[in-house]
Design a protein around this nucleic acid. Sequence first.
DNA 1: TATGAATGAGAGTTCATTCAT
DNA 2: GATGAATGAACTCTCATTCAT
Lengths: 217, 217, 217, 217
Amino acid sequence: MNTQAQNFDEVTARDRPATKREQRAASIDALLNEALTLFITQGYHATTVEVIAQAAGLTKGAVYFYFKSKANVLTTLLDRTEELTVEPTIAAMNAAGDNPKDRLNAFVRSQSVIGAEKTEYMLLAILMSAEFNGSGHAIEIRLIELMARMENALKETVKSGQKDGVFRNEIRADEIASVIMATNKGCYVEWYMRGDDLKGQDFARAFKDFVFDGVAA
Amino acid sequence: MNTQAQNFDEVTARDRPATKREQRAASIDALLNEALTLFITQGYHATTVEVIAQAAGLTKGAVYFYFKSKANVLTTLLDRTEELTVEPTIAAMNAAGDNPKDRLNAFVRSQSVIGAEKTEYMLLAILMSAEFNGSGHAIEIRLIELMARMENALKETVKSGQKDGVFRNEIRADEIASVIMATNKGCYVEWYMRGDDLKGQDFARAFKDFVFDGVAA
Amino acid sequence: MNTQAQNFDEVTARDRPATKREQRAASIDALLNEALTLFITQGYHATTVEVIAQAAGLTKGAVYFYFKSKANVLTTLLDRTEELTVEPTIAAMNAAGDNPKDRLNAFVRSQSVIGAEKTEYMLLAILMSAEFNGSGHAIEIRLIELMARMENALKETVKSGQKDGVFRNEIRADEIASVIMATNKGCYVEWYMRGDDLKGQDFARAFKDFVFDGVAA
Amino acid sequence: MNTQAQNFDEVTARDRPATKREQRAASIDALLNEALTLFITQGYHATTVEVIAQAAGLTKGAVYFYFKSKANVLTTLLDRTEELTVEPTIAAMNAAGDNPKDRLNAFVRSQSVIGAEKTEYMLLAILMSAEFNGSGHAIEIRLIELMARMENALKETVKSGQKDGVFRNEIRADEIASVIMATNKGCYVEWYMRGDDLKGQDFARAFKDFVFDGVAA
DNA sequence: TATGAATGAGAGTTCATTCAT
DNA sequence: GATGAATGAACTCTCATTCAT
C-alpha cells in the first residue's frame, strides 16, 4: 500500500489522480503541505482555514471533510513531524552506539540533515511550541511531549558523557542539554527567518563547531 | 485603610492616584505591563484588547483612550524594549573599550543582566519577531530594525576579533554573529518556556561558557 | 403547501429555492432590496449590517458572504441604479432624435416613468450624494460620476436648444441644466418624504409644466 | 442684551474675551458655528462630538457643559435657523401686502437673500430633514414643523393667486407649493454641493425665472 | 469654566464550523 | 468527494455620555 504520490514534492489537489483512494490521498497531502508552509510562515492563529483550502486548490468545506477541525490539521502535521524528525534522530543516536561523543555527534549530524531536508517540519514543532506555550490548549501538551523525547535522549547522552569525563562537569546535564536544544532551535528559527542571507552550509557548520567546542571537556 | 497595596510591584489602575497626571501614568503603566505579559504568554494575535484592559482593571475603551490601536500598544512596548535592552547593551559594549574580547564579554554580560531584570522585554522582541515574520505588517519592519541594531554591534565586534586573530577565522563573521544571536534568543525562549525547571544562574553560566568556548581561537 | 408566498413582490431568503444558484440569487436579491429601502429611509450610516440581514431573513455573516463590506452593498446597488435609471433615460433621449425640445421632453418623461417605477433607485442616488458629499469616500466619486452622466446629457441638450433659439438664452446652459437637475432631485426627495400627501401624477405634471415653462424661450 | 460677539463671523473659543459671560457666549458660539458647518458638510451622524469640540478649540467635555446632548446642539441650531430664515421670509411676505404675485416675489427674493447670507442655516434645515426623515427621532418632528411654517405661507399665497386668476389653475395649490419648495431646496443643495462650479447670481436668477415662468397663468 | 479619564453599548468585520446538496 | 450557503461567537474599534477634579 501507500505506493501513490511518493514522487511528488508538492502535490496539489488539482492534479486529479484516477481512483478515489488516490484522490483522497492527493487532497489530504495538498492540504497538509500547504498548511505546513502557512503555519510556519504566518503562524497558526493567523492562518485561516479558507487560505489553506485555497492554497491546495480546494474549498473550506473540503478541509472539514478530511479533518475534524483546524487543530486537527496541525496535530496530523505534528504526527508527521514526530515520524520524520524525532524518530530518525533518536534512531541515529542509537545506531551510533554507546559512546557519548558519538551519540552527540549523531544528534548534531542528524539535526543538520533533517534541517536541510525536513526544515519545515522541524520549524513547525519549534514555532508552534512558542505559539501555544501557556495556552492550555491540548496541542501544547502534544508539543511538549514531542520535544521532550528529543531532549531526553540528549540529556541522557550528556549525563553519561559527564560520567565518562568527556563532557564538562561544572554545569548540570539539564542545563547543558537545554542550552544545546536552545541553540539548535534558535539556529533553525534564525536560519529560517533570515531567508537567503545565511549560507546554509556555513551556518550549519558554525552551529556544529559551536556545540562541540562548547561542550568539550 | 488601603495601606496594604503599597508593596506591590504591579500597580493596577484601580489604585487611583491623586492627580490626573498620576492617574494617566498609572493607567498606561498598568495597561502596558499587562499587555507585555499577555503578548509573551499568549501571543499578540491570541491576546484580545478586552483581556488586556480587564487585567489592568480597566475597560476596552480605556485602552483606546491611551493607544490608537492594539498595534500601537505593541509598538509602545517595543519603544520601551529598545530603550531598556538594546541601548544598555550597546552602551555596555562601547564602555568596554576596543578590545573585541572585552566587547563580546560586555555583550554576554549585559544580556545576562537584562535577561534577569528585563526578561519580558527581551522575550517580547524575540517572540514578536517570530509571530510577525513574513506578515508584511509595519511591526515586522520595526522589529527587524530593533534586532538589527544589536546584531550589527555584535557583527562588528566579531569582525575586529577575527582581524586581531582572537576569534576563529574559518567561519564568516556574519555566520558567527548569527549563531551567537540565535543561541542568545534560543536560550531566552527556552528559559522562559521551561519556567522554573531551569536554574537561572546555572543556565546563564552555561550560555556564557558556551559562547566563549565556541568562539575562542 | 407553501403556495401562499407566490404573489409577494418581496421575496425573503426564507423561501428557500431548490438549487444553490437560485438560493444565491434569492439571498442577494433579498439583501439588496432591504438595503435599498433602509439606505433611503434611514440613511447609509444609520443603517446597520445587522438590520439589513435581519430584514432579509438572514444573519450578518451572510451579508459578508455575498458582499465584501457594507460599502460594497451600496456600490452594488449603485451599479443597478445606473443600469435602471441613468441608462434608460439617456437611451430615451437618444431615441428621441436631435430636436432639443424632443430630447428634453424625453428626459422629463423618462424621469417621470422611472420616478414611478424605480423611485427607490433614483432616490438612492440623490440621497447618497447628499450623505457622502465631501466625505472623501470612494463612494462619493462613484456617485459624482453617476450623476454626471445624466447631467451632461441634459447640458448638451440645453446647449443645442439655445443655439436653435428654442430655449432661453439669457442664462448659461450650465445653470439651466443645473436648475433642471436640482428641480428634478428636489421633487423626487419631496415626493418621497411627503409619502402619500402628494398625488404622484399631479405632482409629476406640475414638475413637467414647471420645467417646460421654465426653459421656454 | 445679546450685544456681545456680534461682529465676529467666526469666533473660536481661543479668542478668550474678558468676562465669564463673554467667554461663555464665545464658547457656545464657536461650538455652534463649527457644528453648523460640520453637520452640513459631513452630516449629523458622521460628525462626532469630539470633532465639533476640537474645531471650536475646546474639548468634548465642554460640549456637554453647554449642551445636554449632541442632539441638543442640533436643536439649538434649528432654533437659530427658524429665527434667521423662516421668520424673515414670512415677515417679508407679510410686508409685501396682499397681492399674491408680490408675496411670491417676496418669498423668492427673501430666499435668494437668505440663500446668500445664511446659506448654511437653510442647508441645515434641508439636509437634516433628509437625514432624519423616517427616523422617528424627536428632531424629525421639529424639522417637519419648521419646514411646514414656510410651506404653509407659500401654499396660502398660491391658493389666493389661483383664486385671483394670476396663477395657473390646472394644478392644485398643494402640488404647486410643493414643487416650488422642492425646487428651492433642490437648488440650495445643488448649489452647495457644486461648490464653485456655479455662479451664485446666475444660478439664483435661473431659479427665480424658473419659478415665475412655472407658476404664471 | 472646562478638562481629561473612563465607560459601555454597539458598530463593522472575520472566521471556525455545520450541513444540505 | 467536495461545494457553497449560512451561522454565531468573538474581535477590533468608535463614540455619545458621565463625572471627579
